[in-house]
Design a protein around this nucleic acid. Structure first.
Lengths: 208, 208, 208, 208
DNA sequence: CATGAATGAGTTTTCATTCAT
DNA sequence: CATGAATGAAAACTCATTCAT
C-alpha cells in the first residue's frame, strides 16, 4: 500500500508538473503567441527553471503538440457530454440546443487567440498540422457516429451526411475569424441563423 | 526635368521600392510566417540592403500593418469586379456564380497561410487588429451597397440583410480553417452546399 | 555471511559498478568525444542514474583521468603477453612478429578516436597530461626491460637503445594520425616498412 | 584610383577582420580546445561582438574548417620553400637538412595542441575529417612531385616511393604525440635517427 | 546504495536595429 | 538614396552537478 501510494504519488507529481507547463504555455501562447513566448517566460509562469521544461518536453514544438492534443480531448469530451445531455427532440433539436454555447466558446477571445495561433502554426509547421488534422479527423468521426446513433436523416447517404456535418463545423470555425474582424458582430443573430442553416442542411436541403 | 516631374519621379521610384518590400515581405510571410521571416531575408527578396528597409518602414511591425492594409485593397477590387461581371439573373445567381472562385482563393495554401498569420497577429496585436477590423468594415459596407444596387430581397430589413451577408462571409472564412484541418475536404461539394445556403439565406429563410 | 565477506562483497560490487561506468564512458568518449558525452548519456550506458555516477567519481574530469589510467594497464598487459608468446628467433624477430597486430590496433577507428581524445585533452589539461606521461614512462620502462631480457644489441648503450625503442613507439603513434588523414593508407605496406625500420634501428644503424 | 583603393580597402578590411577571427580562434583552441572555446570568448579575443562572428563564418564548425585550411596552406608554403632553398646534394641531403626545423615545429606545444585538437575533432566530425584528408592529399601530392623533380631513387616505382614518403610524414606525425607523452624525449637524438631512417628508406632499403 | 527531479549558468545562433560611409 | 558592418540582447536548448527522498 505504501509502495503503491508512493509510486502513484510520484507519477502524479510528475504529471502535475507537466500539466503546469501546459497550462502556463497555453496562457502565454494566448497572450503572446508561440514565437512571442520564450521558454524562459513559460518556465517562469509554470514555476520552474527553464532547463526543467525539457524534462517534460523534448522541445518547444512538443509543447505545442501537447496543447493541440489537449484541445482535442476537450472537444471530444464536449461531444460525449452532448450525447448524454439529451432532453428529447430529434437530431436537429439536440444540435441547435448547443449552438449558443458553442458560439460563446468559439468567440471567447482567449479560445480564439489560441485557436488561431495553432492554425497559423499548422499552416507552416507540418508536425503541428499533422496533429491538428488527426485531431480533427478524430472529432469529425466521433461527431458522425454520434449523429448516426441519434438518428441521421434517411435521405442522406453517408458521404453527404458527413459533408453536411463538416459544413456545420465550418460555420463554427468561421465564427472565430468573423468575431475577430468585427467586434460588433451580433452573436445572438448569428446563433439564430446558424440554427436555421443546421435545420436547412439536415432537413430541408435536397440530398444532392 | 522640371522640379515637379523630378519630385514626382523620385517619389514614384520611392513608392515602387516600398511596394517591392511589401511584395517580398508578403511572400516571405506566406512561406515562413512573421517570426520566421527576418529583415535580412525580406531585404534580400526585395533586392535591397537590410538597412534600407528602414528607410521605408519604421520597424518590422510597420510592414505587417502595411500588408494588412494592402489586403483590404485587394478584396475591394475583387468586389468591384464582381459587380462589373454581371451576366444576368438575380442577386443569388450573381453571388453563386462567384462561389467556386472564392472557394479556390480561400483554400489556396499561400493565401490561407498569410490570412491566418494576419489573424493570429491581430488576435494579440491591437494595431494590426484595428487595421483588419477597419478593412473588414470597409469591405462589408461595400458588399452591402453592392447587394442593394443589384437588388436586395424585399423581405429583409437592412440589419437582417447585413447579418445574412456576414454569414456568407463567415462561411468563406470558415473554409480556410476547415481546409487546413482536413486536407481531404471536398471543395466541390462544399461549393454546392455553400450555394444552397446562400440561396436559403437570401430567399427562403424566414426574415426572423 | 561474516563481516569480512560482507565488506568484501560490498566493495567488490562497488568496484564492479565503477568499472561499468568506466566502460560505458570509454565507449561514449570513443563515439562522441569527451564534450559530446553527457553524464546523462554515460549513466544511461552504464545502467545507472546520473546522480549515482557521482558516488564513484568526483566529477566528469575524474572519469577521464580514470580512463587514462586504465589505458596504461591495457598496454602493460599487452607487453606481458608479448614476452610470453615467444616463438623463437632474436629480438627483432619477436618484435616484427607483433607488428601487424599493433598496426591493426592503432588504426582501429575506435581506438584512434579515444587515443586522440586523450592526447588532445592531455595537451591542455595538466592532470590528464601527468597521468599519460606517467603511464608512458611506465610502459617505456617495461618495454626496455623486456628487450634487455630477450637480448639487446651489444653495440648500443642503454641511452641509445632506449631512444631507438622510443622511435619504434613513435612510428606506431604516427600510424594513428596518418590513418586518420589518409583513409587509403596501405597498412600492409606500412607494416612491411615498419619492420624494415625496426630491423634497421636494432641491427644495422650505426650506434651513433 | 579612388574607387579602386576604396574597394580594395573595404575588402581588405573584411578579410582582415576574418583573419582576426581565425587568429583569435586558433589561439583559443590551442589553449582551451574546440569545445572549451565558446564563441563569446573567441569574439572577445577577436575584438568584436559574438553576433558579428557569424558575418564571417556560418557556424563554429566553419571556423574549424577555415583553420584546417589555413594549416594546409602553411605546410604547402613550407614545401615550396623547401624546393627553392636547394643548397646542393641529392634528395636525401635536401630532406635531412630540414629535419631539425620540422622536428622543432612539430614538437612546439602550441602547434601540437592545435594539431591534436584538429585530429581529435576529425576523428568524430566527418566535415573536419574531409578537410584534413583533402589537405593531406594535397600536401602529399605536392611532396611527391617535389621529390620527383629533385630526383627520385631509380629503384623505386611510384607506389613504393609514395609509400616511403608517407612513412617519413608518419614519423613527424608520431613525434607530436611522443613529445606530449614524454617531456624528456631527446629531440636531437630523434632528429639524428629520423635522418638515418630517411636515408635508409630512400637509399638502402630493398625496393620490396 | 540509488534515484531522478531540479537548477541555472552556459552554449550556439539569430535578428531587429543602428550608423558610418 | 543606399550599403552592409556592427551590435547586443535575446532565443532555444544542454548539461554538470546537487539533493531530497
Amino acid at each position: 500500500m505504501c509502495a503503491a501510494s508512493r509510486t502513484r504519488g510520484e507519477s502524479d507529481k510528475g504529471e502535475l508538473r507537466r500539466q503546469q507547463v501546459l497550462e502556463a504555455a497555453t496562457e502565454c501562447f494566448r497572450r503572446e503567441g508561440f514565437h512571442g513566448s520564450s521558454i524562459a517566460r513559460i518556465s517562469q509562469a509554470a514555476g520552474m527553471s527553464p532547463g526543467h521544461i525539457y524534462h517534460y518536453f523534448a522541445n518547444k514544438e512538443a509543447i505545442v503538440e501537447a496543447i493541440a492534443e489537449r484541445e482535442e480531448h476537450d472537444i471530444a469530451e464536449l461531444l460525449r457530454k452532448l450525447e448524454q445531455d439529451r432532453e428529447g427532440g430529434g437530431l436537429v433539436d439536440m444540435l441547435t440546443r448547443q449552438t449558443a454555447e458553442i458560439v460563446e466558446r468559439n468567440t471567447d477571445p482567449a479560445y480564439a487567440g489560441l485557436m488561431l495561433e495553432l492554425a497559423a502554426e499548422a499552416a507552416r509547421n507540418p508536425a503541428v498540422r499533422k496533429i491538428l488534422q488527426r485531431s480533427e479527423r478524430e472529432i469529425g468521426g466521433q461527431f458522425f457516429r454520434l449523429v448516426q446513433r441519434v438518428g441521421a436523416p434517411a435521405a442522406l447517404d453517408d458521404a453527404e451526411l458527413q459533408m453536411r456535418l463538416q459544413m456545420i463545423a465550418l460555420m463554427f470555425n468561421g465564427l472565430t475569424l468573423r468575431m475577430l474582424n468585427d467586434p460588433d458582430f451580433d452573436l445572438d443573430a448569428a446563433a439564430r441563423l446558424i440554427n436555421g442553416i443546421i435545420r436547412f442542411l439536415l432537413e430541408e436541403a435536397p440530398p444532392r
